[in-house]
């Protein structure tokens, strides 16, 4: 069970990132919860300055763009 957060203040790219992760998780049959985190204070807590950023099980793995499918698959399957 993966606990995934997409950090970002509601920009179009953040929504896309969350959707992409959800889609890939379903395809790969990985159980995952995907939450969008828009609170500025929380985003600051992860030390993120470029959104969208992705946190997997409390570990920051990506920042600044929509991640590639290969990256996402990697996080889901690790």
């Amino acid at each position: 069970m993966k606990n995934i957060k997409v950090l970002g203040s509601g920009c179009a790219k953040c929504t896309k990132t969350a959707e992409l992760i959800q889609k890939l998780a379903a395809e790969l049959g990985v159980e995952a919860t995907v939450v969008k985190e828009t609170d500025a204070e929380v985003i600051m807590g992860y030390g993120v300055m470029r959104t969208p950023a992705v946190v997997v099980d409390e570990l920051l793995v990506h920042s600044g763009s929509i991640p590639t499918q290969a990256d996402i698959a990697g996080w889901l399957q690790s």
Partner: peptide, 16 residues
């Protein structure tokens, strides 16, 4: 280069 949608995270990143 930076997208204006990141201005709040950047503000906080600099501030912290």
């Amino acid at each position: 280069p930076f997208c204006s949608c990141s201005s709040i995270p950047v503000f906080l990143g600099f501030t912290s």
